Amino acid sequence: MCGRYAATKDPATLVKEFDAVDNTEGMARPDHNVAPTKNVVTVVERHPRDADGSVLEDEPAQRRLRVMRWGLVPFWAKDKSIGAKMINTRAETAASKPAFRKALKRHRCLVPADGWYEWQRLGEKKGKQPYFMTPRDGSSLAFAGIWETWRDPKEKDAPPLVTCSVLTVDAVGPLTDIHDRMPLVLSKDAWRQWLDPDLDDVAELLQPPPLQVVDQLELRPVSNKVNSVRNNGPELIERVDPAQQLDEEPALFDAPNSA
Rank of each mutant, 00 (worst) to 15 (best):
1 M>C: 10
3 G>N: 07
3 G>E: 02
4 R>G: 02
4 R>L: 07
6 A>E: 01
10 D>L: 15
10 D>H: 14
10 D>C: 13
12 A>V: 10
14 L>D: 00
16 K>F: 09
17 E>K: 06
19 D>N: 14
24 T>M: 03
25 E>M: 13
25 E>R: 15
25 E>N: 14
32 H>K: 08
33 N>G: 02
34 V>W: 00
36 P>C: 05
39 N>C: 13
40 V>R: 02
41 V>N: 01
42 T>I: 06
48 P>I: 07
48 P>V: 01
49 R>Q: 13
51 A>P: 08
53 G>I: 05
55 V>F: 09
58 D>Q: 13
61 A>S: 10
62 Q>L: 08
62 Q>E: 14
64 R>A: 15
66 R>Y: 12
68 M>Q: 08
72 L>K: 04
72 L>P: 00
74 P>L: 01
78 K>E: 11
81 S>Y: 09
83 G>S: 04
83 G>C: 03
88 N>I: 05
93 T>Q: 01
93 T>V: 06
93 T>I: 08
95 A>T: 08
98 P>I: 07
102 K>I: 02
102 K>L: 11
110 L>F: 06
110 L>R: 04
111 V>D: 04
112 P>G: 00
114 D>I: 07
117 Y>D: 09
120 Q>F: 06
121 R>N: 15
122 L>W: 10
125 K>S: 14
126 K>A: 11
128 K>T: 10
130 P>I: 02
132 F>Q: 02
134 T>D: 02
134 T>I: 06
136 R>K: 12
141 L>M: 13
141 L>P: 03
143 F>C: 01
144 A>Q: 05
145 G>E: 01
147 W>V: 01
147 W>G: 00
148 E>W: 04
149 T>E: 15
152 D>N: 15
159 P>N: 07
161 L>I: 10
167 L>F: 03
167 L>M: 09
173 G>H: 09
174 P>C: 07
180 D>G: 11
181 R>G: 05
182 M>E: 04
183 P>Y: 09
188 K>T: 13
189 D>L: 09
190 A>V: 10
191 W>S: 02
192 R>T: 15
194 W>N: 06
194 W>E: 01
195 L>F: 08
203 A>D: 14
206 L>I: 08
207 Q>H: 14
207 Q>V: 14
209 P>A: 12
209 P>E: 11
210 P>E: 11
210 P>G: 10
211 L>Y: 08
211 L>V: 14
211 L>D: 14
212 Q>D: 15
214 V>A: 10
215 D>P: 02
216 Q>P: 10
217 L>G: 06
217 L>N: 03
218 E>K: 13
220 R>K: 12
226 V>Q: 05
227 N>V: 04
230 R>L: 12
230 R>M: 14
238 E>K: 14
241 D>I: 11
242 P>K: 07
244 Q>K: 15
244 Q>S: 13
245 Q>K: 06
247 D>Y: 10
247 D>N: 14
252 L>I: 12
253 F>Y: 15
259 A>L: 15
259 A>N: 15
